[in-house]
Amino acid sequence: MIKFEDVTKIYPPDTIGLESVSLHIEKGEFVFLVGASGSGKSTFIRLLIKELEPDRGRITVGGRDLSTLRRWKVPYLRRNIGCVFQDFKLLPNKSVFDNVLYALQVTGNAGGASRRKVTEILGLVGLGHKTANYPDELSGGEQQRVSIARAFVNHPPLLIADEPTGNLDPDTSAGIMQLLYRINKTGTTVVMATHDREMVDRMRRRVIALEQGQVIRDQKRGGYGED
C-alpha cells in the first residue's frame, strides 16, 4: 500500500524532516507512527498526501509513484486517502451533514445515494442526531467523529490520522480508537501518528518509531517504548 524508499526531506535551511526512511506498509495494516514532537511524524503524513515533496527518494502509494504524479492529479490521490487531523479541519460554515457530504461532492457525487451514504456513516459514528449542527456547536470528540466520518465516507483504501486523539480526554480517545479499529476491520489501511503511550501499548499493533527523522524501531506487535 505504502512504500518509502530512502526518503529524505529537509526544511530549508537545514532542519531535518525525514532522513533516509525506507519502509513498507501492507494493505489492511494498522500502523502506529510514534515519536516526540519534531521527530518527523507529520512530515511523513504530509509527504503521503503530496502536500510536501521529498528532496530525495521515492514514495509509492497504492502502486502510484508520487514523484511522477502531476499536480492536477493530486486531488484524485487525496480522494483515495481519508485524512483525520488533530484540529479536525472541519468547514466552519457547513453543517455536520454538509461537511461529510462535501467529501462526496468534490468527486462529483451529490445525489440521493450520496445523501444516504452520509446519513448512514453519521449514524455509524454515533452522530445521527446532530447532522444539522455546526462544528462549533459540538464537543471535541464529536467534531473528531465528524472528521472521521468525512474521511471514511468514500471508503478510501487508506486512512491517515495525525494525532487524532491529541486534543481529547482518555475516554473520548478510546471511542475514537474504537472507530478507527472498526474502519481498519473493513480492510482499510490505517496509519496513525500519535504520542498516546497508553493507547499504543494497549492496541499491540505495528509500531514505527521515529526520532530526528529516522526510523529507530519497526516492530510487528509493539508498544510505545522499547519492550
Binding site: 498526501i49 486531488p75 484524485y76 487525496r78 468547514l91 468534490v106 468527486t107
Partner: peptide, 8 residues
C-alpha cells in the same frame, strides 16, 4: 481544508 479533502 477543501484541498485536503480532494477538491480540484
Amino acid at each position: 481544508i477543501m484541498k485536503l479533502v480532494g477538491a480540484t
